[in-house]
Computed example of a mutant assay.
Amino acid sequence: MDGVYMRVITGKAKGKKLYSPKDDRVRPTSDKIKQSFFNIIDSLIKDSVFIDCFSGTGAIGIEALSRGAKEVYFIDNNKESVLLIKKNLNTTDLNSMGNIIEMNVEDAISNLSKENVIADIIFMDPPYALDIIPSIIKQISKNNILSQDGIIVAEHDKKYIPEETILDYQISNKRVYGNTTMTYYKRLNL
């Protein structure tokens, strides 16, 4: 395995090692953060449709599949990341439930909407230097690809101050882990 050591924490593919990039262009989510995230969303995972935006290695989406998600859409526009996701899906024997979309996130969301995909969980871990979280949430809202009770989770630098409310979504939870924050958005009860 290349680069940083990563593994699937629990479920069908528990303990399987995942490939990571040889360089630092992808910042994998640590096992501690990944475990906390999945503990929080545990009741939503079984038979869910999960979208992993800015997938990188695919580790988050693969963990979701391992824990019982019905289907995961991996979105990344980097060719090396797409190859890593394919390798990791193959090594975990979860490739039949994973859909890889090689394009930018905004276009992928629009395409998923045209295919009538409705997600239960949308996870995004964009490059920390990009201030893109609000525009992605607006795209999700505009295309109506999240179920009524679904959640959006954004991983970002703790220095980044997320907007409390973005269109019809508002922050429902926030967790800080060192320099990383996970912000959870739910639909406003109008």
Score class of each variant (00 low, 15 high):
residue 115 E to S: 15
residue 38 F to Y: 01
residue 4 V to R: 01
residue 130 L to E: 14
residue 56 G to T: 02
residue 139 Q to E: 14
residue 133 I to G: 07
residue 109 I to T: 10
residue 70 K to P: 06
residue 132 I to Y: 02
residue 97 M to F: 15
residue 107 D to S: 15
residue 113 S to Q: 13
residue 32 K to W: 04
residue 103 M to Y: 15
residue 121 I to P: 02
residue 145 I to T: 06
residue 40 I to V: 15
residue 165 T to K: 14
residue 24 D to F: 12
residue 30 S to P: 05
residue 77 N to T: 06
residue 34 K to R: 02
residue 29 T to Y: 09
residue 109 I to K: 06
residue 82 V to A: 03
residue 44 L to S: 11
residue 16 K to L: 01
residue 119 A to G: 00
residue 112 L to K: 04
residue 118 I to Y: 14
residue 161 I to P: 12
residue 79 K to W: 12
residue 42 D to I: 12
residue 9 I to D: 06
residue 42 D to T: 11
residue 85 I to C: 02
residue 47 D to S: 04
residue 50 F to L: 01
residue 174 K to Q: 06
residue 13 A to M: 08
residue 49 V to Y: 06
residue 3 G to H: 07
residue 99 N to P: 07
residue 113 S to A: 13
residue 123 F to R: 09
residue 51 I to W: 01
residue 132 I to H: 01
residue 171 I to G: 00
residue 137 I to T: 06
residue 78 N to L: 11
residue 123 F to N: 07
residue 156 H to E: 04
residue 190 L to K: 14
residue 106 E to T: 13
residue 42 D to A: 13
residue 154 A to Y: 01
residue 63 E to C: 00
residue 35 Q to Y: 10
residue 88 N to T: 02
residue 55 S to V: 03
residue 87 K to N: 12
residue 122 I to H: 03
residue 138 K to W: 10
residue 26 V to G: 03
residue 154 A to N: 02
residue 145 I to V: 08
residue 152 I to G: 00
residue 30 S to V: 02
residue 178 G to I: 07
residue 7 R to S: 07
residue 87 K to T: 05
residue 130 L to P: 11
residue 151 I to M: 03
residue 54 F to E: 08
residue 83 L to F: 03
residue 123 F to L: 02
residue 89 L to C: 03
residue 11 G to C: 09
residue 69 A to R: 06
residue 40 I to T: 12
residue 41 I to V: 09
residue 55 S to R: 03
residue 94 L to Q: 08
residue 141 S to V: 02
residue 142 K to Q: 04
residue 33 I to P: 14
residue 57 T to K: 00
residue 86 K to L: 07
residue 169 Y to A: 06
residue 83 L to R: 11
residue 185 Y to P: 04
residue 168 D to S: 10
residue 150 G to Q: 07
residue 47 D to E: 14
residue 184 Y to S: 13
residue 78 N to K: 14
residue 30 S to E: 00
residue 112 L to C: 02
residue 102 E to C: 15
residue 86 K to Q: 15
residue 46 K to N: 13
residue 42 D to Y: 14
residue 167 L to S: 15
residue 165 T to L: 13
residue 86 K to R: 14
residue 176 V to R: 11
residue 178 G to W: 04
residue 78 N to V: 08
residue 39 N to E: 10
residue 30 S to M: 12
residue 32 K to Q: 12
residue 171 I to F: 11
residue 175 R to N: 15
residue 103 M to G: 14
residue 173 N to I: 12
residue 77 N to Q: 06
residue 165 T to A: 10
residue 46 K to R: 13
residue 133 I to P: 00
residue 68 G to R: 00
residue 102 E to M: 12
residue 156 H to C: 04
residue 175 R to C: 11
residue 132 I to W: 07
residue 105 V to M: 05
residue 62 I to E: 01
residue 11 G to S: 08
residue 75 I to V: 06
residue 30 S to L: 09
residue 40 I to Y: 13
residue 1 M to Y: 13
